[in-house]
Design a protein around this nucleic acid. Sequence first.
DNA 1: GAAAAGCTGTTATCGTCGATTACATGAACA
DNA 2: TGTTCATGTAATCGACGATAACAGCTTTTC
Lengths: 260, 260
Amino acid sequence: MILGAASRLLAESSTGDVSTRAVCDAAGVAQPTLYRLFGDKDGLLAAVVDAGFERYLASKRALAPTGDPAADLRDGWDNHVAFALSSPHLYRLMFVPGLGTEPAAVKEMHTLLRRTVDRCATAGLLRVPAGAATQIVMSANTGLALSLVTHPGLFPELSLSALVRDIVLAGVLTGADPAPVHSGADEATAIAAITLAAILRTAPPAALTDGETGLLLEWADRLAATHLAAPAVGATGVRRTQLSPSTSTSHSLSQGDNLS
Amino acid sequence: MILGAASRLLAESSTGDVSTRAVCDAAGVAQPTLYRLFGDKDGLLAAVVDAGFERYLASKRALAPTGDPAADLRDGWDNHVAFALSSPHLYRLMFVPGLGTEPAAVKEMHTLLRRTVDRCATAGLLRVPAGAATQIVMSANTGLALSLVTHPGLFPELSLSALVRDIVLAGVLTGADPAPVHSGADEATAIAAITLAAILRTAPPAALTDGETGLLLEWADRLAATHLAAPAVGATGVRRTQLSPSTSTSHSLSQGDNLS
DNA sequence: GAAAAGCTGTTATCGTCGATTACATGAACA
DNA sequence: TGTTCATGTAATCGACGATAACAGCTTTTC
């Protein structure tokens, strides 16, 4: 069970790397055995990547296509991010190859996404060509997941993924509003609050005391952020993915998030 | 000139890694010298990152703030992507740290972006809170750049960055249309063409010969892709960044791109 | 002016890692 | 029974990151 030991050690590793010796020790074999079975350390890691990708595709198949391809697209995004967060090291191995080694599995994922996009297209939901939409969603999705994985400190917002997702999908699909869903007067209110908050922050007015400015700022922030918690694209029939309870759409910004 | 040798070797490296021995040989010094000056290999790489970041910030300052903060935001995006493509290995060192070592420079860049976003906010151009907008743009920008850098084979489209950029900025700014700029009948035409192309590709009709289907497909693709070459958000006063002649907005899809 | 202190750079070496060679063992088959 | 081949091991190699011990040189101090 060399492969299992490698996967386990990788997941437990703090640096995201494993030594062939450690893998062999954990598996109870000598090094040449590993090298005969996998040929190379890269071969071993490729096998680990393949196994991880098998798991990823399994979770992908669990999200069977529904009648709502736009919702499927959204669930696919969430599922992808959840997988990345669940095994960061493995994700980095899968999507940040050593510059030259392209795991074939990535292309398979690309075609999988393409299928969902095509279903959107045949339903008349696409406003950009299917190929462009696929690349846009794919790069934005993996890119965001990589950012979340490699900069856990910089982007502590759990809802960031949902925000970017809704914006990107709204830019690709028809009939989908970008993340902030407000209408008419609400939109004007939100924008005014956002503008005021920015002005207060960069140039506090002399007419108000610091305490007053702070309180006003708090209210403005609250006004500006309310719409971020609203459900967005494809609001009907929201399904939860098994892996991502925390990245779902309806997650509000109640806890420590500071998006102001 | 140990640092210069390290930077040069890193840029020329094929794996994105350098050995301290190679650096010392190239610099004409012995290893302990390097370790006395930089303490560690990580210390050396951190210095390389700092130097690269100095260059990045220099190119950033060259894009002095104009009266159009939205255009500044766009130029900043292009500049970022151009930097990533110009030195992929360095970029990966800067933005894919070893999981634990957060280069302080990244935070500095974050605040730099925040300043531009705040200028948009005070101009009333923001439809999401400034903090959220900063995180959205930042993660999408670095994420896309990482995708372009680490998967040069999967995303060969030079215009992909511009597409994602316009979509993301449109989701964050007011008065900015998402990438496909079409109006009225044009939009209906494009969507119909996209839908038809997708249907033809997934289920070729029996009423047409293969040749006829192919020709029809070509025309539909052309109809669907025309609007992708149109200028987008902040169309007035488009400035070119020094580093990114190829990622500019007006770049058309004439060459080998296949976004269909 | 000579000695002490400190910076700068060297040679030689250690432990770890990825990878390989040469060899041992045991089952399948003629 | 002897050959073959798959499977495993001990021992080893070269490259790497890192360090100890030592040598030259400038600066400071008495």
